[in-house]
């Protein structure tokens, strides 16, 4: 099953954030709760956790790109 990693609402007045760094590469195994991607709002840097265990199937928004709140950043394929 594909589980999307979604850019969360990081604050009421935050509309978008930048992908700083993917901590996993496509094809890497990830555990639920493990940090997979670092994002930055105008004010803070945050680490987003994997919503499920599985394999990072694809990265939709690469590092240094900006993503709107609600955007799918990547897909985790569960077993």
């Amino acid at each position: 099953m594909d589980v999307p990693i979604v850019m969360p609402q990081l604050g009421v007045d935050i509309e978008e954030a930048q992908i700083d760094e993917w901590l996993k590469a496509e094809g890497d195994a990830v555990e639920e709760g493990e940090q997979v991607v670092i994002v930055t709002t105008p004010k803070v840097t945050l680490e987003l956790e994997a919503p499920a265990s599985g394999v990072l199937k694809s990265i939709a928004i690469p590092a240094d790109e900006i993503a709107k709140v609600g955007t799918t950043l990547g897909i985790i394929e569960t077993e």
């Binding site: 930048q18 930055t40 590092a63 240094d64």
Partner: peptide, 9 residues
Amino acid sequence: TSRVRQLAK
């Protein structure tokens, strides 16, 4: 640093 890379864009 990502801040400086971000600023450049």
